[in-house]
Design a binder for these strands. Structure first.
Lengths: 121, 121
DNA sequence: CGCTCCTGCAACCAACGGGTTGCAGTCATG
DNA sequence: CATGACTGCAACCCGTTGGTTGCAGGAGCG
C-alpha cells in the first residue's frame, strides 16, 4: 500500500486548497465523486484526480457502495503526519539549543557531535 | 513576518523535497544561502527562492550576520502546524464515529443523541 | 427492456513553479 | 583602493499539474 508516503509527498497532497475543500467535505461524512462535483466549482474528473492523490497518501479511503463509490477522510493518517512533523520540529529546537549552548560556552574541550538517530517510524 | 499562513500554504511549502533538504540543513544549524548552495545540487538563486517561501510561512527565520544572511529552521512553527493538523484529524474521526453510530443504531427513538458519550480522545 | 446515473480512462490546454543564467549592488578584507 | 564574496532582482525555459472535454462501460430503477 502507499501508506509509506514520504513526508513531502503527503504535505504536497495537502498543499492544494481544492484538496482541503474536498477533505473538509469528506471529514463531515462519506461522499461520492459526483456528489462532490455538485457542491464544488470543478468538474467530476478534476475531483477524481484529487481523490486519487489523496487516496495514494492515505488521507482518503474509498468504498464501493451500491453503484457508486463513496470516499471518506482518514483522520488517523492526518494524526500520524502531525506526530511526525511535531517530532522533527522538536529535534530542530533541540539542536538549536545545543548550538546556542556551545556558542555561549568558551568550549575548551572538543565538542564532537554525537549523531542521534532520529529518522524512524 | 509570518503573516496569516493558511494551512494549505504551509503544507505546500513543505511539499517540495528540496525544501525539506534545506530545512533539514537549517535544522542542524544556521547557514547562509551561499553555503546551502554549496552543499545542495541547485543554484544559489534557487535556494533563495525556496528560502523566501519558507520564510513567508514562518518555517525559517533570517538574520543578517556580518555581511552574510544566515537562515535557520523554526521548529516551533512546525509544532504549531502539527497541532493544527492533529486537531482536524481528530475532528474527522469523531464525526465518522458519530455517523457510524447513527448508521448501526436503528434509532427509532433516539432523536436526542447529544455529544458522543465516549469521545475517544 | 431501456433509461439514467455514476464511474474510469485518455487527450488536450494553460498556468504555476522550480531551476538556470546574468547583472548590479554592497560590504569586509588584503 | 581594489578585489573577492555574498546578496537581491529580473528574464527566461520547461516540466509538472490542475482543469477541461469527450467517450465508453456498468449497475440500479421505472
Amino acid at each position: 500500500m502507499t501508506a509509506t508516503a514520504t513526508l513531502p509527498v503527503v504535505c504536497a497532497a495537502l498543499g492544494d486548497p481544492m484538496r482541503w475543500e474536498i477533505l473538509t467535505r469528506l471529514g463531515e461524512g462519506p461522499m461520492s465523486a459526483s456528489a462532490l462535483a455538485r457542491v464544488l466549482p470543478v468538474s467530476r474528473q478534476a475531483i477524481g484526480k484529487h481523490l486519487e492523490v489523496l487516496r495514494e497518501v492515505g488521507l482518503v479511503e474509498s468504498e464501493q457502495r451500491g453503484r457508486e463509490v463513496v470516499h471518506l477522510a482518514i483522520g488517523a493518517r492526518l494524526g500520524t503526519l502531525a506526530r511526525e512533523l511535531d517530532r522533527i520540529g522538536r529535534s530542530w529546537e533541540t539542536r538549536l539549543l545545543r548550538i546556542k549552548e556551545l556558542a555561549e560556552r568558551p568550549g575548551p574541550d572538543t565538542p564532537k557531535a554525537p549523531e542521534a538517530p532520529e529518522a524512524s517510524d
